[in-house]
Nucleic acid binder design. Structure first.
Length: 115
DNA sequence: AGGGTGACGGGCC
DNA sequence: GGGCCCGCCACCC
């Protein structure tokens, strides 16, 4: 049986996984779930990024949907924030879309190439 | 206790 | 690419 303690540790692993995404790269919610050892729990990843105020810095803006889109509601402050943060590290965002083939982080990913 | 929700994703069409 | 459906599950009434 999963205890509340287990879920706390899982959330911790999720945050750790997010911190591993290199600057200039992105990962999908599902990717993070896998890295955190909870395949199939992408939804939980999104959930754990919802209430992160008052916590250690987390590059939450590097996590996007498997469709290559920013998952936040378009037009929300957080959406704008995510676009800005990504642009700031060289990730091209077009109409909320990011080229996963180019920016997705996975084992063996080379250093970010910004043209 | 039960039902709705959503920062998800994969399969299908 | 887009839309639908369904599985998923922590949260919030």
């Amino acid at each position: 049986m999963p205890t509340s303690d287990d879920s706390a540790r899982l959330k911790q692993r999720i945050r750790d996984a997010v911190r591993r995404i290199p600057r200039g790269f992105v990962a999908t919610y599902g990717d993070i779930a896998v890295v955190a050892g909870a395949p199939g729990r992408a939804r939980l990843v999104g959930r754990s990024l919802e209430r992160i105020e008052n916590e250690a810095p987390l590059p939450w803006h590097r996590v996007i949907a498997a469709s290559g889109r920013i998952a936040l509601p378009e037009g929300s402050p957080a959406y704008a924030e995510q676009c800005a943060q990504l642009a700031n590290e060289g990730v091209i965002v077009n109409r909320g879309r990011i080229d996963l083939a180019r920016y997705r982080w996975r084992r063996g990913s080379p250093a970010p190439v910004i043209d």
